[in-house]
Write a protein that binds this DNA or RNA. Sequence first.
RNA 1: GCCCACGUAACUCAGUGGUAGAGUACCUCCUUGGUAAGGAGGAAGUCACCGGUUCAAGUCCGGUCGUGGGCUCCA
Length: 642
Amino acid sequence: MTEITVTIQDGEKETFAAGTTATDALRALVSNKQRKQTVAVLYNGTPVDLSCPLQEDGILAPITLKSEQGLEILRHSTAHAMAQAVKELYGEDVKVAIGPAIEDGFYYDFDRDTPFTPEDFAAIEAKMAEIAKSRQPVERLEMSRDEAIAFFSEKGEPYKVELLEDMDEERVSLYRQGAFVDLCRGPHIPDTSWLKVFKMLRVAGSYWRGDEHRQMLTRLYGTAFTDKKELKKYLNRLEEAKKRDHRKLGKQLGLFTISDEIGPGLILWKPRGSMLRKLIEDYWKDEHYRHDYQLLYTPHIARQDLWKTSGHLDFYGENMYSAMDIDEVQYQLKPMNCPFHIEVYNSNKHSYRELPIRWCELGTVYRYERTGALHGLMRVRGFTQDDAHIFCRPDQLEDEIFNIIDLNLHILKTFGFDQYDVYLSTRPEKYVGSDEHWDLSTEALKRAMDKKGLAYEIDPGEGVFYGPKIDIKIKDQLGRSWQCSTIQVDFNLPERFEMSYTGEDGAGHQPIMIHRALMGSLERFIGILIEHYAGSFPLWMAPEQARILNITDDQAEYCLDIYAQLRKAGVRIDKDLRNEKLNYKIREAQLMKAPYMLIIGDREKADGTVTVRKKNGENLPPMTPQAFADMVEKECAEAMAV
RNA sequence: GCCCACGUAACUCAGUGGUAGAGUACCUCCUUGGUAAGGAGGAAGUCACCGGUUCAAGUCCGGUCGUGGGCUCCA
């Protein structure tokens, strides 16, 4: 009999007969306590089941439920159990498609004539609990691909057959628990008793293989955890996200509204939302001025010919609003700002000495989005890009990219985002421009990021056809990521619009164009800010910085004086002089997330002061209105100078 | 666009075939109260819209529009 040596990470090793299972090896090598938590193992780096017979020397690493990987296995197994429950309950009219573990849970796609509804959850969960209780072994079967195809054809599972037909592997693995057999790479839990804490969450439609021309399936989402507390924590997090939902807060705080009368995906900013937006826009403009940009304003609409020249009609036409006929000339709403900036550039000749030219605009664009895609402020049909276009010489590219990244991170930080993931997308299969240009600019992007000390991942082949790009995804307070910033090099438009500058040699040269947006869309960015801050904005962004509350009518006149004085001093101040109790007014101001309340009673009136209550309930010593204005100004200046 | 769910007062929601409800907000009156809801009264809805079934429809059926969860796409 052959012997093998199994080593665990801390170096301990043991010799076994070949074919010893991972479980038996673990029994000899790790503590009972750890073994009970072990759901599968990594053997020489490959994840395998506990029941896997070890055939060669190797390094054994337990995968415990405490690890990401262990949890993923548990969730994947829970998906199988859910499919098993569904098959047992609804039998032959259900065909199974795919069921992977995903972030925070799992799903399984089914094909059934009458789709599932949330009312089916209780029955399915009960059946899953039964399956868990009956401790059914989860057994791995290996067979040839052809055998598997025959097996699933016979079972009447066309989706599994299709998956198998598209596979390259000659041998495949199946997992069986009870009468349920699924095509799966594994590994899985050893038996169904490992399923303890799980919950079905929602149902949704999804296309087979994400292709809208194919069968619509019903997707059941669920999640699983190792203990009840974790599940509860997760459900609380969902609650928290719900509380922060910008659509809900937008309504509560009176920031924006969307009206059927106007149309879906079109935002109406209410006074408080408009103030918030103005503050963001002012900050953005000031910061761009400081960084040597020039501001442009361009129209919302242009002749169709422009969109032919730019290529948008060909490449982006489906997302553009239909043309309108004006004096027999076709016009279309702009989906992007770039051609306008190019036309500004082309309105006169340029020398190499002028470059780089940096033009920025808060440009409102309109794009047709399918109704199903619309979502609050996050996905709309009319939105404002914080756009900029930089026209430069090849030798300036790297510095320009560096400066853009620098400004980008600076602005994001001021808004409270200092965690992000950065991606560099390189040349795709279909592209325009020379290889030399692509290499030059891809290298420039890399060097600029290195110089900034920015860690990034490369997305090979994910660049746009016209040039490589950098995308920055920010992380919000709840750890969710949002792609906002994008920096794209473009070799296409300068060519199409025959842009040029006169070089040192007196000849015409083509400038390199960089498109970039930091916030992406103002609407969406504000949506993200609302959720990030849960509506409780930092002082510099708060639409209402302070609210004056009088205690009785006797101080009303004094309050009006202070109100006028603070408005003149530039404080965003409101007043609540209604005949209500102080508690009542404090509660309302608190719900509207006013950073400060100025409480005015007879004492303040007599002393010519205000009592400042912070939103955390803490009181500051009485101060004069001017001292308060100075304090607000100082606090804002500090926040904006990050 | 597709699948499922939902659409009742300004807001949050109850109402499963028989006279449209509650809380909050709003208006009036009383109350003038020092750090998260004082009291009383009043007004307010073409039950999203269009059509059908029924003696009778907020409720059942069909369509349209909108919203939500997803699929797809992306800022």
